[in-house]
Design a protein around this nucleic acid. Structure first.
Length: 593
RNA sequence: GGGGUCGUAGUUCAAUCGGUUAGAGCACCGGCCUGUCACGUCGGAAGUUGCGGGUUCGAGUCCCGUCGGCCCCGCCA
């Protein structure tokens, strides 16, 4: 029996006791994960972020504690003193790290009580996400989310240590900065001392890190929040974190080496997995041709094959007419797909129609030969060469879309992703890293009737393409690269323009005249005139990387306080209206309809 | 801006073709229980079927609108 005012000082976490601490007097503090009252004997699973320890309350050990324990409910916060005891052999719980021992409480203090929870915290009940987000502090008690955030901490620590070792300096850049109309929509912050003027939250620290290169910091990094006011997705939040890097006097390959080393270390030290380096490199054009997308999941095949030349001579009007009109025919081979039912094929057809295709042609290769509603339009030789082009064998299903190149590419790409998921083609234990390079520098924006930068306006063109600025800007390749992992873009960067006149050429190509360029980016242009070194960099999407490492289906599961699809925080109820007084100070008026 | 999907007890779900008093598990409350660990057992309480309107003798169910969660297209240099 302890004295009432005895001092409780935590000696161990709830996850670290084992048989070696036998008979030790310990003090644990934590939350009641569950209570099992047997009348004479009460068991409490005490939980903290480190684990769960079973506490036994036996009236023969301490009558007062046992009585107190009868009023204890889930998520009460307790301090418990007691002796570490070995569990009887057949009572060992192999599911717990601490399952060989239990603590017989001889003194108990209730540090705080808890109302009964709005939803259970156990792992086996799925709870609607709006509730979880409203009570985020409770959701964050669950081991899955705690584990994800701890994983995130470990990755960030590794990255900091590695970059420090490599001579990188971590430098903070402003969150209140200048709005630049290129790129994503900005989050704006009104300036009270400059009424009518606004700061923008950075979409990335791009210009600042380039300026730091001009200042001679040589190697910069920052683990930094970025803000983009665009619509959300399962892997997109309005504020997200980048591992942002920039280096002087380097080539693209220096960046590849650094990032490959970083990824290899993270996967080795945190997941215990050895990944192959160097990562394969895929040109943008080839990626689009083979996979229909610039962020392919290369862990499985189902590659797109062009059969335009083989199939254009057919009687089948859908094909021949498409080719006449400048379209293309591409197909994919679904290995062992000939067992697909008519209904399944109809569903796939519906899917590609959803992406703009007019239909989906299919050919099954069976024991009895080709089976398809369209075989009658093709000669045996033609069918053989189509099958050969797609490496079709008995049992396979060949799927084709004939349309404009854009529709063929996007619909077959979506079909490939869909079938990949449905047939569980990617090996879940594999990590498919790939560099995508040689992006076009510019793309034509139909809505704005001008070229826009595919990466950003500071990306350097490939040297031998410089002459194309005057001839054919669309064909200029950029010294830009993306890092793709399992079909997700997890990073991107480029070698930057460090020469003022090339930067001006770039602005010209974007339809930004000298005057406007100075207005928007004058500070950078000027900086380039004061001895800017050749430089380049990359930014990795930390949240997406953690998602993949954690096996999380949503970016919200790796962010402590994420926002919903409507960019709201259900816990704090942000965004919200503000006082008229605040608006007045900012000289702002809200228009209501 | 558009498409899809979901919303019923604290929670997870059920409720036939539109038809009696909207049910069940878990949680909650009370009793019993000294080896449980998703404890067991007996009993109890618990509902604005997201919200508003409409159709109907009758709506959780059908229709219209609206709010919210999720997934996707557009958008995201």
């Amino acid at each position: 029996m302890a004295e009432k005012d005895e001092i409780f000082k935590r000696t161990h976490s709830c996850g670290e006791l084992d048989i070696r601490e036998l008979n030790r007097e310990v003090t644990l503090m934590g939350w009641v994960h569950s209570r099992r009252d047997h009348g004479g004997l009460i068991f409490i699973d005490l939980r903290d972020r480190d684990g769960i320890t079973q506490i036994v309350l036996n009236p023969e050990i301490d009558k007062i504690s046992h009585e107190m324990a009868q009023s204890i409910r889930n998520e009460f916060v307790l301090a418990i003193k007691g002796k570490v005891s070995a569990r009887p052999k057949d009572m060992i719980n192999p599911k717990l790290k601490t399952g060989e021992i239990e603590v017989y409480a001889d003194n108990l203090r209730i540090l705080n009580e808890s109302r009964s929870l709005p939803f259970p915290l156990d792992e086996h009940s799925g709870i609607s996400e709006n509730l979880r987000l409203k009570y985020r502090y409770l959701d964050l008690r669950r081991p899955f989310l705690q584990g994800n955030l701890i994983l995130r901490h470990k990755v960030v620590k590794r990255v900091r240590d590695l970059l420090d070792k490599k001579g990188f300096i971590e430098i903070e850049t402003p969150f209140l900065t200048k709005s630049t109309p290129e790129g994503a929509r900005d989050y704006l912050v009104p300036s009270r001392v400059n009424p009518g003027k606004f700061y923008a939250m950075p979409q990335s620290p791009q210009l600042f890190k380039q300026i730091l290169m001009v200042s001679g910091f040589d190697r910069y990094f920052q683990i930094v929040k970025c803000f983009r006011d665009e619509d959300l997705r399962a892997d997109r939040q309005p504020e997200f974190t980048q591992i942002d890097m920039e280096m002087s006097f380097i080539e693209r390959e220096d960046i590849f080496l650094l990032i490959e080393e970083m990824m290899a270390e993270i996967f080795r030290e945190i997941k215990g997995i050895n990944i192959d380096t160097p990562f394969p490199i895929l040109g943008y054009k080839e990626a689009i041709e083979r996979f229909g997308i610039d962020k392919p999941d290369i862990r499985y095949g189902l590659e797109l094959k062009d059969i335009t030349d083989i199939a254009k001579e057919t009687e089948f009007q859908v094909f021949s007419k498409t080719v006449e009109e400048g379209g293309k025919i591409k197909g994919i081979n679904v290995k062992l797909g000939s067992r697909f039912s008519r209904k399944e094929l109809d569903d796939l057809t519906g899917m590609v129609i959803g992406y703009g295709a007019k239909g989906l042609a299919w050919i099954k290769i069976t024991e009895e030969g080709y089976k398809s509603p369209i075989t009658k339009f093709f000669s045996k030789e033609m069918l053989d060469s189509i099958a050969e082009a797609l490496k079709g064998e008995k049992g396979d299903l060949l799927l084709f879309v004939a349309d404009s190149p854009e529709v063929v590419t996007s619909s077959l790409c979506q079909l490939r992703i869909h079938l990949g998921e449905r047939l569980e083609l990617p090996d879940k234990d594999k990590y498919g890293f790939v560099w995508i390079t040689d992006f076009p520098l510019l793309e034509y924006d139909e809505a704005e009737k001008r070229y826009i930068a595919m990466h950003h306006p500071f990306t350097a063109p490939v040297d031998e393409d410089l002459r194309l600025f005057d001839e054919d800007p669309a064909r200029i390749r950029a010294k830009a690269y993306d890092l793709v992992l399992n079909g997700q873009e997890i990073g991107g960067g480029s070698i930057r323009i460090h020469l003022r006149d090339i930067q001006q050429k770039m602005f010209n190509a974007l339809g930004i005249d000298e005057k406007e360029a100075i207005l928007r980016f004058g500070f950078l242009l000027e900086a380039l005139e004061y001895g800017a070194p050749p430089h380049g960099g990359i930014a990795l999407g930390l949240d997406r990387l953690i998602m993949i490492l954690a096996g999380a289906a949503s970016i919200r599961d790796v962010i402590a306080f994420p926002k919903t699809q409507k960019a709201a925080c259900l816990m704090t109820d942000a965004p919200s209206e503000v006082d008229e007084k605040q608006l007045k100070e900012l000289k702002l008026k809200v228009e209501r309809d």
